[in-house]
C-alpha cells in the first residue's frame, strides 16, 4: 500500500473508510505542506503545524468531494491556503488582506547568497506571491496547477511569478555588484 498512488489511496478511503490509507497520505504530504505553511506564516512553526493539522482534518472530512481531476496535492494546498487565509482574517480582523500589493522593502536586507538569505527575501513578498513562489519553485507545480490550487486566474500566477522574480533578482544582482 505504501507504493500506491495518492488517487488509489483516496479511492480506498472513500470506498472503505480505511484510516491507514489516510495516514499514508498524511505521512507522504506532511513535510511539504508544513513547509508551505511555514513560508506563509513567516516561519511561525507552531502556527504552521496547527494549520497543517486543520488542513488534514478538513481534507479527511471532505475527501469524498475530491474529484480526482486535479492532483491530490493541489487540492490539499488549496485547503491549506484557504485555511491560512481564514486564520489570518481571524487573527488580524482589521488588517487589509490585499494580496495584490507589491512590497518594496528589499533595501533593508543584504543580497541573497545562501538559502537562509533567500528565505528572508521570500518572506518579504506579498502573501499570494509567497504562495505562488513556494508552489512553483519548491513544489514544482505548473502555472495551471497553481491557479487551480489558489483559485486565481492563470494570468495572475504568471504575473505574480514574473514580478516577484524580477524584484528579487534585481535586488540580488545589485547587492552582488556592490559587494
Amino acid at each position: 500500500m505504501a507504493t500506491d498512488s495518492d488517487a488509489a489511496l483516496v479511492a480506498r478511503i472513500v470506498a472503505t473508510g480505511d484510516r491507514s490509507a489516510f495516514e499514508l497520505l498524511v505521512r507522504r504530504h506532511q513535510s511539504p505542506l508544513r513547509n508551505f505553511l511555514r513560508r506563509l506564516t513567516k516561519n511561525d512553526a507552531a502556527r504552521a503545524d496547527d494549520l497543517a493539522q486543520e488542513t488534514f482534518f478538513k481534507a479527511y472530512r471532505s475527501i469524498a468531494s475530491f474529484a480526482g481531476t486535479a492532483k491530490f496535492s493541489s487540492w490539499l494546498y488549496r485547503i491549506a491556503y484557504n485555511t491560512f487565509l481564514n486564520d489570518q482574517r481571524t487573527r488580524f480582523p482589521h488588517a487589509e488582506l490585499d494580496e495584490s500589493q507589491h512590497v518594496s522593502v528589499f533595501n533593508d536586507i543584504e543580497g541573497a547568497s545562501t538559502q537562509s538569505d533567500l528565505e528572508r527575501l521570500l518572506s518579504l513578498l506579498p502573501l499570494r506571491q509567497r504562495a505562488v513562489f513556494d508552489l512553483h519553485y519548491k513544489k514544482g507545480m505548473t502555472h495551471q496547477e497553481i491557479a487551480q490550487a489558489l483559485e486565481v486566474p492563470l494570468g495572475t500566477v504568471k504575473s505574480d511569478l514574473a514580478r516577484g522574480h524580477d524584484a528579487l533578482r534585481k535586488h540580488v544582482t545589485a547587492q552582488k555588484r556592490l559587494a
Binding site: 513535510s31 479527511y60 519548491k138
Partner: peptide, 24 residues
Amino acid sequence: PESELADAGFSESVMKRLPVTRWG
C-alpha cells in the same frame, strides 16, 4: 530543494484527533 521536515509525531497526532466521519 527544501529541507525535509521530520515527522516527529505529527502524523500520529493528526490521526489521533481525526474526526469520526461517515467514511470512518
